[in-house]
């Protein structure tokens, strides 16, 4: 049961990071095509629409893997002076707090997405519906919340999680 949960969660975290990475490479391509085209009098129509909406996927796509790899920055001044018990309690608390924050983000952005649909909001040139990207942000936030809850659970049980596949930095 736990193994299956772990596997599902890992799959979602990897998928989310995969989408973000794909988005980043897509944005590089869009900018290059737009810059070259513009200097020949043929800019890519709606390039800015594509860039800003893909950015949502880039920024939130990485949240889950960042959470799983302990990538969120902390002020570690007193860590050596705290007892191991306290440090573990803090880890559990921070993980749960982060999960609550991401669930709250998902919930409020979901509400905003419904409002966007009602107001018919979309990007100015390509008419990409804002709500699509808000729903995507919600989904990616929920994966991040899941990753944080798993961190908290691991800390509570005293398990050091296996390093994620994409963790090593070049």
């Amino acid at each position: 049961m736990r193994a299956m949960l772990q596997k599902t969660a890992d799959g979602l975290i990897s998928l989310s990071a995969f989408l973000g990475t794909l988005g980043l490479l897509f944005v590089v391509g869009v900018i290059v095509v737009d810059v070259i085209g513009r200097n020949f009098g043929m800019p890519l129509y709606g390039a800015q629409d594509l860039v800003i909406m893909t950015m949502v996927i880039i920024v939130f796509g990485g949240m889950a893997l960042c959470a799983r790899d302990d990538g969120h920055i902390v002020v570690d001044i007193f860590e050596p002076h705290f007892s191991p018990r306290l440090n573990r309690a803090i880890d559990v608390g921070a993980g749960l707090l982060g999960a609550v924050i991401f669930v709250l983000i998902a919930y409020t952005v979901f509400k905003s997405a419904q409002l966007s649909q009602m107001l018919n909001l979309s990007t100015n040139l390509l008419r990409l519906p804002t709500a699509w990207f808000q729903y995507a942000l919600c989904a990616l936030s929920l994966v991040a919340a899941l990753a944080l809850m798993m961190r908290a659970a691991c800390s509570a049980l005293g398990i050091r999680p296996a390093p994620a596949s994409g963790q090593e930095t070049p």
């Binding site: 905003s112 107001l119 018919n120 100015n124 008419r127």
Partner: peptide, 23 residues
């Protein structure tokens, strides 16, 4: 701005329809 007013972040505010032209 329009969304902020609807969501109650502020009670009143101004904006440009052109920034959210689809609305």
């Amino acid at each position: 701005q329009y969304v902020r007013i609807v969501q109650g972040t502020a009670d009143m505010g101004w904006g440009l329809p052109g920034y959210t032209s689809s609305q």
